[in-house]
């Protein structure tokens, strides 16, 4: 009603006292095409009863949204995933710096279903088949888009790396939580191939919570969580999944570095930490040796060349004078 007016919003003060505009405009067309396009506003914003309204609460994704789950006619809700997240390593446990931990909306937004032109051309007849039985064209189109979008378009590996890096590559934040800063992934073949658009190499989630092995990002665990994909007991199976590193050994899984982080903040000096430090030292040493080799050899010859040119000039001069 009001929210379809472009420009609707209020000015508020942020934590530093700067004025920021909060936009309340909702593009109806985009919203209708989105994941939640069939949910009424009050399905999520449940405390809104009157118009106009003030102090609307934040949306709780685990609430029931007055929709029917077509699979079993129960009331639809994301409660289970919210519960999974809470139990996962990302769950808020009432500890210090809880505000850093991710919520639903940190990873998910309400995107429109948009399949590519190529995909829609390939699957167009499918919609016609739906319409042979299903009367409502709007419903059929939505079902078709939902199915094909979900089946074909997943988050790209590039996006996943960027998403996880937002926190895990943030040195300050990781230090607060006594975690390793994830570094060096972009220097490995996995990281580089992803930047070249290869979707067959592993991104963060393919190792840390692969659906292929019945893990889920919502139930993600750390290497210390028993039963997680990156726990020492399961690492090898994770590397071997889907034929990626089928012939890999325990040595491959436990000692190879997928992201050789160079900053470690873990305070405990355990056997595995000592080993890790040794490995980082080896990598550091090799890198350093090559830096020196390159600088010395190339520098030496470049210097030699410059002197050589000067000598040639000197020779010419000398001959000219003689």
């Amino acid at each position: 009603m009001c929210h379809n007016l472009a420009g609707l919003g209020v000015f508020e003060k942020d934590e530093e006292g700067n004025a920021v505009k909060r936009i309340f405009y909702v593009n109806e067309k985009l919203f209708k095409a989105s994941y939640h396009g069939r949910v009424a506003c009050t399905g999520c914003h449940q405390d809104v009863k009157d118009i106009p309204h003030t102090d609307v609460k934040k949306v709780d994704c685990s609430s029931s949204c007055h929709m029917t789950d077509p699979s079993d006619n129960s009331e639809f809700t994301h409660k289970r995933m919210a519960q999974d997240l809470k139990n996962s390593v990302h769950g808020k446990k009432g500890g210090e710096h809880d505000e850093d931990l991710p919520e639903c909306k940190d990873c998910h937004n309400n995107k429109p279903y948009q399949i590519t032109v190529k995909q829609s051309l390939q699957t167009m007849n499918f919609l016609k088949v739906c319409l042979e039985c299903h009367q409502s064209e709007e419903w059929a189109e939505r079902f078709y888009e939902h199915t094909f979008y979900r089946a074909s378009i997943r988050r790209s590996s590039k996006d996943i790396v960027a998403l996880c890096s937002r926190c895990h590559a943030d040195q300050e934040m990781m230090q607060k939580h006594d975690l390793d800063v994830v570094m060096g992934f972009e220097d490995t073949f996995h990281g580089k191939a992803i930047q070249y658009g290869d979707e067959d190499v592993a991104n963060c989630l393919n190792c840390h919570a692969p659906y292929a092995m019945d893990y889920s990002p919502h139930r993600i665990g750390s290497e210390e969580t028993p039963g997680s994909a990156v726990h020492p007991d399961n690492k090898l199976a994770t590397c071997q999944q889907s034929g990626c590193h089928a012939d890999a050994t325990e040595k491959f899984a436990s000692q190879g570095k997928v992201h050789p982080s160079s900053y470690t903040f873990s305070k405990a000096s355990t056997a595995s930490n000592d080993e890790r430090e040794f490995q980082q030292w080896v990598i550091y040493l090799i890198t350093l040796v090559y830096k020196i080799l390159i600088a010395v050899i190339v520098g030496f010859f470049v210097l030699h060349r410059i002197l050589d040119l000067l000598a040639a000039r000197r020779e010419k001069k000398r001959l000219g004078e003689v």
Binding site: A248, F252, G256, Q279, I283, Y290
Partner: peptide, 17 residues
Amino acid sequence: DEITHYVPGIVLNAFYI
């Protein structure tokens, strides 16, 4: 994969560099 039947995995990182 095969090389780790003989050497530790960190060698791969070293070789890569």
